[in-house]
Nucleic acid binder design. Structure first.
Length: 835
RNA sequence: GCCGAAGUGGCGGAAUUGGUAGACGCGCUGGACUCAAAAUCCAGUGAGGUUCGUCCUCGUGCGGGUUCGAGUCCCGCCUUCGGCACCA
């Protein structure tokens, strides 16, 4: 760079301007090397004596990346956000753990291997190397000594270990069950991975299939997943709401209806036991096991069974969306209502779902929209048993269940407000053993088996005589076998590794076969954040005293798209591990921040849309610091924002201006123009900026406005680089921008004659500098601003009012009118109300 | 349908406790420097009016309301986005 020759020009020696141009490439490399060499952001695990020591510690974590090709803008935003928090907290004296890893198992690598050849491991590791290099180029303050990847046997050994612990506790079990099957990916999906009846990954319409599968009993933790939300410090309300909806707890009663002819009881679940007297028919889901028995040998058998077959042929999507018109068929049977002995006709209809409640309902058309629609379609009786508290006539269905409504035509319960009627009728049923209060959930158990190659093997052996037998803990890890062909054929590709599959039973020694399913990758990512605490431990997933020192995570940051899946699974794992005494806390993430997405041309950035902005190209052109600044300056971090190419030019210009201003001030000092004064407008502005940035980062968790205030400070310095406060203001600007632009900040800090800004404590605003001798008094007449005046602070109300009234512009608005009232906000505003 | 969030200049956004709407940035216009360009710097930039006065009126999705004063609080709508959805 130095001394380059320009065509047709005289030989240039680098002049001062050239040496001092802001060239991000060199300085970013320089400081990245320093930090890497020093392990500047590594933190040691505590020695036993330190555990109780009074050093404030913080665990800041962003969701780990899936190593798909390279880093995208969402990653840049996520990790830069975390980086600002890390630097801010470090410089505020906290010991901060901030690790990084890769969620390395999963379908995309396997599909790429099928498409392009090669081993999923090779593809994954190549991607990891690329991402790691990009992360270093971004200059993120990461403790690289704790790096992990979920596909390494050192890691998945402990995933398997945890699976076996869950198994021992009865929380991992195998059963045949109707499952969601993706015909394209040729694997099963958890309920959480089915979106509108389609595969979350590939969008194919999901089919139902019956298979032997492994499940985690997450339903056993449904109440704790809901109730322990109280332990969280700060989660976005909408994420909590999404989880609550997903768990879907509903309180009600199970009521037994009796089919006298067949001598059987059929339970139903209802949240409205108050409406039992209004039940006029009864409906079973088409898949309900009793259906065949009900109609066997009756005149209706053919018609009913035809309907059942039709319903079975309908996909989830059709059943949910296509025709909302109610269909159904009468079985000709009746069932007895336990509260009044009424005989109700039994129908079969697909608006009743086998998966929810008991797969059977009592239908109350007067007070339920769906039952009402069905009754109207098929001409069934509608019997009103709830009315408004004032007895007014209402249109049916009438679904109010608050105290504004009361029971009607309900024997001794008539007249009771609905909440009391619900309790009363439920108690009445319990006394007679006809039903009891129960709770139902929407949440289903977590289906974790996958019929794919690139995942963590399930450490189980199937033995003819012993059944499912866990692989002994000391034989872990069960290594993923090498195979040739990853193409899914409806069974797990692992089944092809015959030498691997064939084994002996750990219990009886007989010939046995290994489980060939692998685990859902969400299992891997449900505990990785704990492993970071003790990343190299080879006796346990993590040692209790170490994990309890760091975790739970103080600040977790990631995309809202994980609001349900990852975040709920991770909470479940943590709770189970707490019950197993492996960790001393019940919630993994005390504070959660969900960042918004980055759009371009109105759409999410994606290769197929061709609207991707690759971070590398921007780093080449503007440097990592300008990119880091822009990604956070764009708008509130939690909002979705539109990428604008010209935006990064703005933050790049800002860094250039900061660079020049610092050099001007340094030059000005060496020319002897420095002043030792400690008063002047720049001191005030600098201290105000410190206060503003500290408050935004520390209390408000707001990342865009600090950049704006530092920009304003730099603008002010550049207007008066010779003024007394210029050096202090420059140092302040550099120090405050350091979490955002650590490389250029470090370089300028050095040129200002200091060193190691990343370890320098965060500046503190001097309260006396935040006070002013004068302020701008706003004068309103009838609430409209009419004038402003510079006035000494601390004046009393009367003084302010008389000063306000004396202003000529105010006078002209007061003319001839009577002052009725004056409102004074001290040191701020006077409002004169005139008639 | 239910639940949640959000609507502010040409654009991204700021306004923290009800007290100066539009900070900061982008874009645009004009100017300086330059043979020229880039870079940089200076000035202007919500709309309309205007006697060009840092003068007036209007202005934060729409309609009402509370208040001396509302982008901010209340009531009713509209739109957009996200989640759930025949959940009994």
């Amino acid at each position: 760079m130095l001394g380059r020759v320009r065509a047709g020009a005289t030989l240039f020696l680098p002049n001062e301007d050239e040496m001092r141009r802001y060239e991000p490439e060199q300085i970013e490399k320089k400081w990245q090397n320093v930090w890497a060499r020093e392990g500047a952001f590594n933190v040691a695990n505590p020695e036993p004596a330190d555990v109780d020591a009074d050093v404030p510690r913080t665990y800041v974590l962003e969701m780990l990346p899936y190593p798909s090709g390279e880093l995208h803008m969402g990653h840049v935003k996520n990790y830069t956000l975390g980086d600002v928090v890390v630097h801010f907290r470090r410089r505020n004296g906290e010991k901060v753990l901030r690790p990084m890893g890769y969620d390395a198992f999963g379908l995309p690598a396997e599909n790429a291997a099928i498409r392009e050849g090669g081993h999923p491991r090779a593809i994954t590791e190549r991607n990891i190397a690329a991402i790691r290099a990009q992360m270093r180029r971004m200059g993120w303050a990461i403790d690289w000594d704790r790096e992990l990847s979920t596909h390494n046997p050192d890691y998945y050994r402990w995933t398997q270990w945890l699976f076996l612990k869950f198994y021992e506790k009865g929380l991992a079990y195998r059963r045949e069950a109707p499952v969601n099957w993706c015909p394209v990916d040729q694997t099963v999906l958890a309920n959480e991975q089915v979106i509108d009846g389609c595969c979350e990954r590939c969008g194919a319409e999901v089919e139902q299939k019956s298979l032997e599968q492994w499940f985690f009993k997450i339903t056993e933790y449904a109440d704790r997943l809901l109730d322990e939300m109280d332990l969280l410090e700060s989660w976005p309300e909408r994420v909590l709401t999404m989880q609550r909806n997903w768990i879907g707890r509903s309180h009600g009663a199970e009521v037994r209806f009796r089919i006298a002819d067949l001598d059987i009881d059929v339970p139903v679940f209802t949240t409205r036991s108050d409406t039992l007297f209004g039940a006029t028919f009864f409906v079973l889901a088409p898949e309900h096991p009793l259906v065949a028995e009900l109609v066997q040998g009756t005149a209706r058998e053919g018609e009913v069974m035809d309907y059942v077959r039709q319903a079975a042929g309908r996909t989830t999507v059709e059943r949910a969306s296509a025709e909302r018109e109610k269909t159904g068929v009468d079985t000709g049977r009746t069932i007895t209502n336990p509260v009044n002995g009424a005989e109700l006709p039994i129908w079969i209809a697909d608006y009743v779902l086998l998966e929810y409640g008991t797969g059977a309902i009592m239908a109350v058309p007067a007070h339920d929209e769906r039952d009402h629609e069905f009754a109207t379609t098929f001409g069934l009786e509608i019997r009103q048993v709830v009315e408004p508290a004032d007895g007014a006539a209402v249109e049916l269905p009438y679904t109010d269940k608050s105290t504004d409504a009361r029971a009607l035509n309900s024997a001794e319960f008539s007249g009771l407000p609905i909440p009391e009627a619900i309790d009363g009728i439920t108690a009445w049923l319990e006394e007679r053993s006809l039903g009891e209060a129960t709770v139902h959930y929407r949440l289903r158990d977590w289906l974790l088996s996958r019929q794919r190659y690139w995942g963590c093997p399930i450490p189980i052996v199937h033995c003819e005589s012993c059944g499912t037998v866990p692989v002994p803990m000391d034989e872990l890890p069960v290594l993923l076998p090498e195979i040739e062909d990853y193409v899914p054929k409806g069974r797990s590709p692992l089944a092809a590794a015959e030498d691997w599959v064939a084994t002996s039973c750990p219990a009886c020694g007989a010939e046995a076969r290994r489980e060939t399913d692998t685990m859902d990758t969400f299992v891997d990512s449900s505990w990785y954040f704990l492993r970071y605490a003790d990343a190299h431990c080879d006796t346990l997933p993590v040692r209790r005293e170490i994990v309890d020192y760091w975790a739970p995570i103080n600040q977790y940051i990631g995309g809202v798209e994980h609001a349900i899946l990852h975040l709920m699974y991770a909470r479940f794992f943590t709770k189970v591990m707490n019950d197993l005494d492996l960790v001393g806390f019940r919630e993994p993430f005390l504070r959660l921040f969900t960042q918004g997405m980055i759009y371009r041309d109105g759409a999410k950035m994606s290769k197929s849309k061709g609207n991707v902005v690759p971070p590398d190209a921007l780093i080449d052109e503007f440097g990592a610091d300008a990119l880091r600044l822009y990604i956070l300056f764009m708008g509130p971090a939690e909002d979705d924002v539109e990428w604008q190419d010209s935006g990064i030019e703005g933050t790049s210009r800002f860094l250039g201006r900061l660079w020049r201003v610092v050099h001007e001030v340094v030059d000005s000092e060496s020319a002897g123009r420095a002043s030792v004064a400690s008063e002047g407008p720049l001191f005030h502005t600098a201290h105000e900026t410190i206060a503003k940035v500290s408050d935004d980062l520390g209390r408000r968790f707001q990342f865009n406005t600090p950049v704006a205030s530092v920009m304003a400070l730099v603008n002010e310095i550049s207007k008066a680089p010779d003024s007394p406060g210029a050096r202090f203001a420059c140092e302040t600007a550099v120090s405050l921008i350091q979490p955002y632009a650590p490389h250029v900040a470090e370089e300028l800090w050095e040129r200002l004659g200091h060193e190691r800004l990343w370890e320098h404590s965060w500046p503190a605003a001097d309260a006396s500098m935040l006070e002013h001798d004068t302020f701008e008094l706003v004068v309103q007449v009838n609430g409209k601003v009419r004038d402003r005046a510079h006035v000494a602070t601390g004046l009393d109300k009367d003084a302010l009012v008389s000063m306000a009234i004396s202003l000529p512009k105010v006078q002209s608005h007061l003319e001839g009118r009577e002052v009725r009232k004056t409102i004074v906000v001290p040191d701020k505003l006077v409002n004169i109300v005139v008639g």
